[in-house]
Each structure stands twice: as C-alpha cells, then as structure tokens.
Amino acid sequence: MINVKNLSFYRENRVVLDELDLQLEKGELVLLSGSNGVGKSTLLQLIGGVLKPTSGEITINGTDISEMKVKDQALLRSIAPQRRIFTLAYSVGEVLHLLPEKRRSFNVDLIIESLGLVEIMASKVTELSIGQQQRVSLAIALIQEADFYLLDEPFSAQDEDSVLNLVALLAEIKKEKGVMVVSHNTGTHYSQFDREIKLT
C-alpha cells in the first residue's frame, strides 16, 4: 500500500499541498482529479521521491520512502511523468528495453499491443507524433515491474480509441497491482475507476 500521511509541501513559502492523506492499495484503479495547479503533479513527484515533503510522510508497503534507496523505490512503484524527453533517436523497441530483463513486467506484449506500438517498434522515438511519444512514455512506465503504477495525465494527447484501450489495459493491470491515474479530464470513462480522489 502507498500511504500518504499528513503530507504538506511548500514551494517558496507558498502552500502547494496541505496536510494531505491518501492511500493506494493493490487491486484498485484510482483517479486523482482536480483542476490545474492544485498540486497533482507535485504529489506524484513527492511520491516518486524527486521532491522532499515539507512535513508528513509517504510509505510504500510500510517503509518510509525517505529511508529507501532510489533503486529500491523503483522496484515498488513506477511513475509515468507528464512528459519524457526524447533527445536521442532510439527506436521504440530500444527505448522499451532499457531496463534489464529481470526488471520488466511479464505482460510486455500486452502493453505494447494495447498501446498500439506494434507497428512503430522500429520507428525512431524522436520522429513520432506527440500522441505516439506519450504512449511510448506510458509503455516505459508500465513495463517497469512494480507493485504500484502512477500515471501523470496519460490521456492528454490521446484520441478516443487510444483512451479506451489504455483504460482497458489499466483495468487488466490493476487485478494484481495498484494503479493511480492523475487527470483533470477523464472524458466518458469515469465508470472504469474504483474511486476518485478530488484534490482541491
């Protein structure tokens, strides 16, 4: 379980998150919603360990992440940032296999197929459309073997069909894992989520 307790985060003396409590358990698909600028992405960066909380604590499976090595955190949770920088012309296939095999999820093929990447496996990531790049970025995160998956705005550059396929994939993954999707706009797929956390 990811357990966020009494979490506050200040940026330059401005309150971004104030005494927030939140849980994510295995077997659930959670939607984290809220308008732009309420700190959804900040929360993900805190859970990911990139930012340090001003106060409060974040534990994964009972251990405070501030006491975990970066390497060990990555074995427990995987995060798809809003934007990934593709500066080098890797092929899609290469970029999906950057992690060593033992750290890859067993359902790699399902992920690649659901995200519509089969046809573009040989294409260079730098030459893809924004939507394709976003799906590659999501695939990178989902292929990383972990207990919890947190995706930042995964639908923002996707068409209706892609969103449908992605939500179906997440519903499959959540059977064994915990999944949280950060989004300010879920369209018509609200019903697929087990619950919604509104950040205000």
């Binding site: 990139v50 970066v70 390497k71 990555a74 995060i79 080098l88 970029v95 995160a141």
Partner: peptide, 12 residues
C-alpha cells in the same frame, strides 16, 4: 537520457 525525473523514477 530520458530526463532527470524519469531517470529517478526508473531507479537511476
């Protein structure tokens, strides 16, 4: 090469 935050999330 995928970015600093990304690298951190992937355990590097």
């Amino acid at each position: 090469s995928l970015g600093e935050n990304s690298s951190h999330y992937m355990g590097v």
